[in-house]
Design a binder for these strands. Structure first.
Length: 159
DNA sequence: GCCAACGTTGGC
DNA sequence: GCCAACGTTGGC
Protein backbone atom coordinates (compact mmCIF):
# COMPACT_ATOMS: atom_id res chain seq x y z
CA UNK A 1 0.00 0.00 0.00
CA UNK A 2 1.19 3.49 -0.83
CA UNK A 3 0.49 6.91 0.63
CA UNK A 4 -0.40 10.13 -1.13
CA UNK A 5 -1.30 13.75 -0.62
CA UNK A 6 -4.04 15.34 -2.74
CA UNK A 7 -4.38 19.11 -2.80
CA UNK A 8 -7.74 20.79 -3.01
CA UNK A 9 -9.26 24.19 -2.41
CA UNK A 10 -11.73 23.67 0.44
CA UNK A 11 -14.00 26.44 -0.80
CA UNK A 12 -14.51 24.38 -3.95
CA UNK A 13 -14.28 20.86 -2.59
CA UNK A 14 -12.81 20.04 0.80
CA UNK A 15 -12.87 17.31 3.41
CA UNK A 16 -16.35 18.42 4.53
CA UNK A 17 -17.75 18.01 1.04
CA UNK A 18 -16.25 14.55 0.80
CA UNK A 19 -17.76 13.53 4.11
CA UNK A 20 -21.23 14.61 2.96
CA UNK A 21 -21.13 12.86 -0.42
CA UNK A 22 -23.32 9.80 -1.06
CA UNK A 23 -21.29 6.84 0.21
CA UNK A 24 -18.75 9.51 1.26
CA UNK A 25 -17.13 8.85 -2.10
CA UNK A 26 -16.13 11.16 -4.93
CA UNK A 27 -14.24 10.94 -8.22
CA UNK A 28 -11.09 13.05 -7.93
CA UNK A 29 -11.31 14.71 -11.32
CA UNK A 30 -10.02 17.83 -12.99
CA UNK A 31 -6.32 17.05 -12.57
CA UNK A 32 -4.67 18.61 -15.63
CA UNK A 33 -0.97 18.27 -15.00
CA UNK A 34 1.03 15.50 -16.62
CA UNK A 35 3.13 14.51 -13.65
CA UNK A 36 0.05 14.31 -11.44
CA UNK A 37 -1.79 12.47 -14.23
CA UNK A 38 0.95 9.85 -14.36
CA UNK A 39 0.56 9.17 -10.66
CA UNK A 40 -3.21 8.82 -11.00
CA UNK A 41 -2.97 6.59 -14.06
CA UNK A 42 -0.02 4.40 -13.13
CA UNK A 43 0.62 4.37 -9.42
CA UNK A 44 -2.31 5.29 -7.21
CA UNK A 45 -3.81 1.92 -6.27
CA UNK A 46 -6.87 0.52 -4.60
CA UNK A 47 -6.72 0.86 -0.80
CA UNK A 48 -3.95 3.46 -0.86
CA UNK A 49 -4.30 6.16 1.78
CA UNK A 50 -4.58 9.84 0.93
CA UNK A 51 -4.07 12.97 2.98
CA UNK A 52 -6.57 15.62 1.95
CA UNK A 53 -4.64 18.89 1.88
CA UNK A 54 -6.39 22.24 1.85
CA UNK A 55 -4.64 24.91 -0.22
CA UNK A 56 -5.32 28.53 -1.13
CA UNK A 57 -7.37 29.14 1.98
CA UNK A 58 -7.22 30.46 5.52
CA UNK A 59 -6.12 27.23 7.20
CA UNK A 60 -3.61 25.67 4.84
CA UNK A 61 -2.63 22.12 5.72
CA UNK A 62 -3.72 18.51 6.05
CA UNK A 63 -7.39 18.28 6.93
CA UNK A 64 -8.02 14.56 6.99
CA UNK A 65 -7.66 11.16 5.38
CA UNK A 66 -9.32 9.40 2.46
CA UNK A 67 -8.89 6.00 0.89
CA UNK A 68 -8.68 5.04 -2.77
CA UNK A 69 -11.72 2.93 -3.65
CA UNK A 70 -11.16 2.86 -7.40
CA UNK A 71 -7.80 3.02 -9.16
CA UNK A 72 -7.06 5.17 -12.20
CA UNK A 73 -9.58 5.36 -15.04
CA UNK A 74 -10.29 8.04 -17.66
CA UNK A 75 -11.61 11.33 -16.30
CA UNK A 76 -14.81 11.68 -18.33
CA UNK A 77 -14.94 15.44 -17.82
CA UNK A 78 -12.29 15.75 -20.54
CA UNK A 79 -14.87 14.58 -23.11
CA UNK A 80 -17.64 16.94 -22.01
CA UNK A 81 -17.73 20.23 -23.94
CA UNK A 82 -19.85 21.70 -21.16
CA UNK A 83 -17.22 20.97 -18.55
CA UNK A 84 -14.58 23.43 -17.42
CA UNK A 85 -12.18 20.49 -17.71
CA UNK A 86 -13.03 19.76 -21.36
CA UNK A 87 -10.00 18.91 -23.48
CA UNK A 88 -10.62 19.03 -27.25
CA UNK A 89 -7.50 16.99 -27.89
CA UNK A 90 -8.72 14.05 -25.83
CA UNK A 91 -11.05 11.31 -27.00
CA UNK A 92 -12.49 8.18 -25.39
CA UNK A 93 -10.24 6.18 -27.72
CA UNK A 94 -7.17 8.00 -26.45
CA UNK A 95 -7.93 9.60 -23.12
CA UNK A 96 -5.41 12.08 -21.86
CA UNK A 97 -6.55 12.61 -18.26
CA UNK A 98 -7.30 10.20 -15.44
CA UNK A 99 -8.99 10.21 -12.08
CA UNK A 100 -9.43 7.91 -9.12
CA UNK A 101 -12.31 7.57 -6.66
CA UNK A 102 -11.67 8.36 -3.04
CA UNK A 103 -13.71 7.66 0.07
CA UNK A 104 -13.75 9.66 3.29
CA UNK A 105 -11.92 8.03 6.19
CA UNK A 106 -11.54 10.73 8.82
CA UNK A 107 -11.40 14.44 9.40
CA UNK A 108 -8.87 15.78 11.87
CA UNK A 109 -10.28 17.97 14.62
CA UNK A 110 -7.75 20.59 13.61
CA UNK A 111 -5.94 21.05 10.34
CA UNK A 112 -2.28 20.11 10.64
CA UNK A 113 -0.93 23.39 9.35
CA UNK A 114 1.74 23.77 6.71
CA UNK A 115 3.68 25.79 9.24
CA UNK A 116 3.64 22.89 11.68
CA UNK A 117 4.55 20.43 8.95
CA UNK A 118 7.54 22.55 7.94
CA UNK A 119 8.65 22.62 11.57
CA UNK A 120 8.85 18.81 11.71
CA UNK A 121 12.48 17.79 11.17
CA UNK A 122 11.49 14.32 9.96
CA UNK A 123 9.49 15.73 7.01
CA UNK A 124 11.75 16.39 4.05
CA UNK A 125 10.46 14.36 1.11
CA UNK A 126 6.77 15.21 1.12
CA UNK A 127 6.48 17.82 -1.60
CA UNK A 128 4.42 20.26 0.34
CA UNK A 129 7.47 21.40 2.34
CA UNK A 130 9.47 22.08 -0.79
CA UNK A 131 9.56 25.56 -2.20
CA UNK A 132 7.58 26.03 -5.37
CA UNK A 133 5.98 22.62 -5.33
CA UNK A 134 2.81 22.90 -7.36
CA UNK A 135 2.00 19.25 -7.83
CA UNK A 136 -1.57 18.49 -6.81
CA UNK A 137 -1.01 14.73 -6.46
CA UNK A 138 2.15 13.76 -4.64
CA UNK A 139 3.57 10.67 -2.97
CA UNK A 140 4.21 10.63 0.78
CA UNK A 141 6.94 8.27 2.04
CA UNK A 142 5.54 5.79 4.56
CA UNK A 143 7.69 7.00 7.45
CA UNK A 144 6.64 10.59 6.81
CA UNK A 145 2.99 9.56 6.56
CA UNK A 146 3.14 8.02 10.03
CA UNK A 147 4.88 11.05 11.52
CA UNK A 148 2.32 13.39 9.96
CA UNK A 149 -0.56 11.23 11.10
CA UNK A 150 0.70 11.15 14.68
CA UNK A 151 1.19 14.92 14.63
CA UNK A 152 -2.29 15.49 13.23
CA UNK A 153 -4.06 13.27 15.75
CA UNK A 154 -2.02 14.55 18.68
CA UNK A 155 -3.20 18.04 17.84
CA UNK A 156 -6.71 16.73 17.55
CA UNK A 157 -6.47 15.41 21.11
CA UNK A 158 -5.78 18.92 22.28
CA UNK A 159 -2.17 18.69 23.28
C1' DG B 1 -3.53 41.39 -3.86
C1' DC B 2 1.40 40.39 -4.48
C1' DC B 3 4.79 37.82 -6.50
C1' DA B 4 7.99 33.80 -6.97
C1' DA B 5 8.01 29.51 -9.00
C1' DC B 6 6.64 26.60 -12.22
C1' DG B 7 4.26 24.49 -16.49
C1' DT B 8 2.68 25.20 -21.12
C1' DT B 9 2.52 27.30 -25.56
C1' DG B 10 4.07 28.62 -29.87
C1' DG B 11 7.22 31.12 -33.06
C1' DC B 12 11.33 30.34 -35.11
C1' DG C 1 14.37 21.65 -30.02
C1' DC C 2 15.14 26.20 -27.98
C1' DC C 3 13.37 29.66 -25.25
C1' DA C 4 10.60 33.92 -24.41
C1' DA C 5 6.07 34.95 -23.26
C1' DC C 6 2.30 33.88 -20.92
C1' DG C 7 -0.90 31.70 -17.57
C1' DT C 8 -1.49 29.36 -13.20
C1' DT C 9 -0.53 28.00 -8.55
C1' DG C 10 -0.38 28.89 -3.96
C1' DG C 11 1.78 30.79 0.29
C1' DC C 12 1.90 34.91 2.46
Amino acid sequence: MAYWLFKTEPEVFGIDHLQRRPAQTEPWDGVRNYQARNFLRDEVALADKVFIYHSSCKRVGIAGVAEVVRAGYPDTSQFDPESAYFDPKASPQSPRWYRVDVKFVEKFDQVLSLQDIKAMPQISQTGVVKKGSRLSIMPVPETEWHALYVAATRRANGR
